[in-house]
């Protein structure tokens, strides 16, 4: 057993999921030989992109049964490769796709997957994997038992621009797969009704979270958005409750925005929300909890009760505008 195997992800369009490169960068920083694998039909282009970095080898797993992603197909194909390569560490990007098959793959090999890792520390012979608990409010250290280690890495925890370029040979392999072992039949991906608001184009956004407590309190946020000339957006629970349409949800399942100003009211800052807005030029957070993870990305913070701060803010903003 030796080396690191990075499992890169092919998008439905045949490109490389950008988190794949962050995962590759994490592996390169670890001072061990790194190989990468990409699976799917016609993964050649994605494999060629991976081959532009300094690696031992890029494996392209090609099979007609991998034409569309399925958890069963991905698990069987990667299990087949891992059996041949025997890496000591297998890294995945913590994408929705990896969530779907990586725990299955680790279980098939009798191993534990440490998911959504934000830091890897080498300690003597072992490694310690840090991940978030309680939706980012606390951090936990996990030391995997000796043997093959499986970990998936959080979006944004490593930087793809740190990648070391190189020229890597590509090996195309056909894994042993049987049609009968693939039980999921996926249909084509689709988007819900056309989006009426394009939040990604909005220069100013006022976003509300569960801290708003009740649907009727949304008026307060609406009024603030009104004086600022901002679009209204929300975290998932607000949309789940039907208080705002899904198209206004910001985050990994919703829209990705990068406005000049993102004003977050009563949003805790779970990673699935942060990935959708942390590229904003200026982030302001109003939250009563000084330890809320949203303050990790905020430029300006107000620790306080939004029901006291927002009315004052509406008045001040109106004054400043007139």
């Amino acid at each position: 057993m030796s080396g690191i195997l990075v499992v890169a992800e092919l998008t439905a369009q045949g490109g490389l999921h950008k988190l794949s490169l962050e995962t590759l960068a994490a592996a390169q920083a670890m001072d061990a030989p790194v190989s990468a694998v990409v699976f799917g039909q016609n993964a050649g282009e994605a494999a060629a992109r991976l081959a532009r970095y300094r690696l031992e080898k890029v494996f392209a797993l090609d099979h007609e049964l991998l034409a569309q992603y399925t958890a069963d197909g991905a698990t069987a194909a990667l299990d087949w490769l891992i059996e041949r390569v025997q890496p000591e560490l297998v890294l995945f990007p913590h994408t929705y796709q990896a969530r779907d098959y990586a725990p299955k793959l680790a279980t098939r090999r009798g191993r534990v997957l440490v998911s959504d890792v934000i830091a890897i520390q080498k300690q003597a012979q072992a490694i310690v994997l840090r991940r978030q608990l309680f939706q980012g409010k606390l951090a936990g250290d996990y030391r995997p038992a000796p043997g093959m280690v499986f970990a998936s890495l959080q979006a944004g925890a490593w930087r793809a621009d740190a990648l070391i370029p190189g020229e890597t040979p590509i090996e195309t392999l056909t894994p042993e797969l049987a049609a009968a072992e693939i039980r999921q039949q996926p249909e084509a991906p689709f988007r819900e009704s056309s989006r009426e608001v394009d939040l990604s184009a909005a220069p100013l956004i006022v976003a509300v979270g569960r801290g708003i407590k009740e649907e009727s309190n949304l008026e307060l946020a609406r009024e603030l958005a009104g004086v600022l000339g901002a679009e209204l957006a929300a975290s998932r629970p607000v949309c789940d409750n039907g208080w705002l349409p899904m198209e206004r949800q910001v985050g990994s399942s919703g829209q990705t925005v990068a406005p000049k100003l993102y004003l977050a009211l009563g949003i805790s800052g779970a990673i699935q929300h942060l990935v959708g807005m942390k590229g904003s030029q200026c982030i302001v957070a109003i939250n009563k909890d000084p330890d809320a993870p949203i303050f990790e990305v905020a430029d300006y913070g107000i620790v306080g009760d939004l029901f006291e701060v927002v009315p004052a803010l509406i008045a001040e903003a109106a004054k400043a505008k007139s």
């Binding site: 978030q132 608990l133 936990g140 957070a285 990790e296 300006y300 913070g301």
Partner: peptide, 19 residues
């Protein structure tokens, strides 16, 4: 196989200007 060994407050890297 991998259990939680230590729980801690996350390291804060960003300096938020608190008003």
């Amino acid at each position: 196989g991998a259990v939680l060994e230590r729980l801690s407050l996350p390291e804060r890297t960003k300096r938020t200007v608190l008003l």
